[in-house]
């Protein structure tokens, strides 16, 4: 069994003729918290979207918990993954989206219980009990019966986190989860993530523009630009003593705002 929760092995991703990255190699250890920082449009989010099977790859191999994601082995031959294989792999992961993507026609609790009931086969009572427990964890137990439109952005995102956790993932993919929030609502969401990171029970991959937060909770920070990891290391090194000129320029542009 692999020590890595996530592996990108020589991966190429193109959008039409535009090569986003080529021969990309990147691993995340089990229970590691990794932040990916870098300029907009550099393809950071695409890394998460490939893992969540929202985007496919053009070459190479991606492994999730040691299992190849986009390929499956049948009678010794490698074949493109079918829906069943993808569903099995997706079970390891949970994703939280920049724009929440809550189901607007369902109550908060139903948003959380929908997939556990219909995918994990939990009974309604069990799913509701788990859902309420998760809502307490994110501090929204009183909003169980509210509809998403009644919630603030920060509350919506906390429901988004609870919804992802309800599927009992081992890997959490957090895609710019505070980018769409008003500044005063960012902290309540980060507080939830902070607690999750402290539990040390999840492998977490964050794409973020919250530099202070990345610095605080990450085991490793990766500066991603133009389709490659320019520099990576412990947060103190990346933020205090970046080796690479491009990292310095990027961080300066952030700190000077």
């Amino acid at each position: 069994m692999s020590d890595f929760a996530v592996e990108f092995d020589n991966v190429t991703k193109k959008f039409g003729d535009n090569v986003l990255f080529e021969h990309f190699n990147f691993n995340i250890r089990k229970n590691e918290v990794v932040s990916i920082i870098g300029p907009s449009g550099s393809g950071k989010s695409t890394l998460l979207r490939i893992l969540m099977t929202l985007e496919s790859i053009d070459a190479g191999m991606v492994r999730v918990q040691g299992e190849s994601l986009w390929h499956m082995q049948k009678n010794g031959a490698w074949l493109p993954a079918d829906e069943r294989h993808l569903r099995k792999c997706r079970g390891h992961m949970g994703m939280v989206f920049q724009h929440f993507n809550l189901f607007p026609h369902m109550t908060v609790l139903r948003n959380i219980t929908e997939a556990p009931i219909h995918v994990l086969g939990q009974s309604k009572e069990e799913a509701r009990a788990n859902g309420m427990e998760l809502l307490r964890t994110v501090g929204l137990a009183d909003k169980a019966d509210a509809y998403p439109s009644r919630l603030s952005g920060g509350q919506k995102q906390r429901v988004g986190i609870a919804r992802a956790l309800a599927m009992k993932p081992s890997i959490l993919l957090l895609d710019e989860i505070t980018s769409a929030l008003d500044p005063e609502l960012v902290d309540e969401v980060l507080e939830v993530i902070r607690k999750l990171a402290a539990e040390d029970a999840y492998t977490m991959m964050l794409v973020t523009h919250e530099m202070y937060f990345a610095r605080e909770i990450s085991d490793r920070v990766c500066f991603f630009d133009a389709g490659q990891i320019v520099e990576e290391g412990p947060p103190e090194q990346i933020f205090n003593a970046p080796n690479h000129e491009r990292t310095r320029a990027f961080l300066n542009s952030f700190l000077n705002i």
Binding site: M52, T53, L54, R87, R90, G91, M93, G94, M95, F97, H99, F100, N101, L102, F103, P104, H105, E114, A115, H118, V119, R163, A164, M167
Partner: peptide, 26 residues
């Protein structure tokens, strides 16, 4: 919204559940 499909994939909902519970009601 495209995000509704993506959330359904991320939650591993089957195509049937996605249409029935998420997409068609909206």
């Amino acid at each position: 919204d495209k995000g509704q499909w993506e959330a359904s994939i991320a939650l591993n909902l089957s195509p049937y559940r996605t249409y029935r519970d998420v997409i068609l009601p909206q």
